[in-house]
């Protein structure tokens, strides 16, 4: 009985030792690598994009579409903020500048204005009778973010150049305040309906 017990213990020790030998194999390691490529991303980011126009031509609430720009590259990036609206002959630039202000033109969706009417509304001295179905509103100069985002008005192309120098998320916004229309761009010639423009933030 004693011999049997001793044999069992001996076999167990050998067995465990053998088992441990298997467990004590050289440590293997594997490097796990995940490659993150460069990313450019832009998305619309809330803000009010719809309002009404009262009987005097004023916007009743501001329009303030927002954008979120994402970059994981520590390189300065060129973006542009442009706007278009629809004339009877196709898309035209909705941004314009006159007398030191930047304006955005909203055109009637149901009865688009002629491109001449848009040009007249965007001029320094619009004539009310010459710009039916297009109304211009002043735009608040977009806010620069120190060390992240800088806007500059491109007077030859009538759009904003945007210089992004920030790695990460950057939020920006275009604001059309609830103010009266540019003089002589709103009057009884403007038919009821929906007036609109398209604002495009482009990552170039």
């Amino acid at each position: 009985m004693k011999k049997l017990l001793m044999s069992t213990i001996a076999l167990s020790v050998i067995g465990f030792t053998g088992f441990n030998d298997v467990k004590a194999a050289p440590i293997a390691s594997q490097t796990v690598t995940a490659v993150l490529g460069t990313i450019s991303s832009v998305e619309s980011y809330g803000g009010n994009v719809s309002t009404t126009i009262d009987d005097t031509g004023s916007l009743t609430t501001p329009l303030d579409p927002g954008f979120k720009i994402i970059s994981n590259v520590g390189t300065s990036q060129a973006l542009t903020l442009t706007a278009t609206t629809t004339s009877s002959s196709g898309e035209v630039n909705a941004f314009s500048s006159s007398n030191g202000n930047v304006y955005i033109a909203l055109a009637n969706v149901n009865t688009p204005p002629t491109s001449d009417a848009v040009t007249n509304a965007q001029s320094d001295s619009p004539v009310a009778a010459s710009n039916p179905n297009v109304i211009c509103y002043a735009v608040t100069p977009p806010t620069n973010i120190e060390g992240q985002l800088e806007y500059s008005w491109n007077s030859s192309g009538n759009y904003y150049d945007v210089n992004l120098t920030h790695q990460g998320d950057t939020i920006t916004q275009l604001v059309v305040p609830a103010t009266s229309a540019k003089p002589n761009t709103f009057n009884g010639n403007d038919e009821s309906g929906s007036y609109q423009a398209i604002v495009i933030l482009s990552y170039n």
Partner: peptide, 30 residues
């Protein structure tokens, strides 16, 4: 460029006309 800028025509009250800005995003790959 996103092409999905569906127009939403809202009913106008009191004869008002509506103003709207559609937002588009565009990314260029040089």
């Amino acid at each position: 460029e996103d092409v999905n800028t569906k127009e939403v025509l809202l009913s106008k009250l009191n004869g008002n006309i509506g103003g709207k800005i559609l937002v588009k995003t565009r990314v260029g790959v040089p």
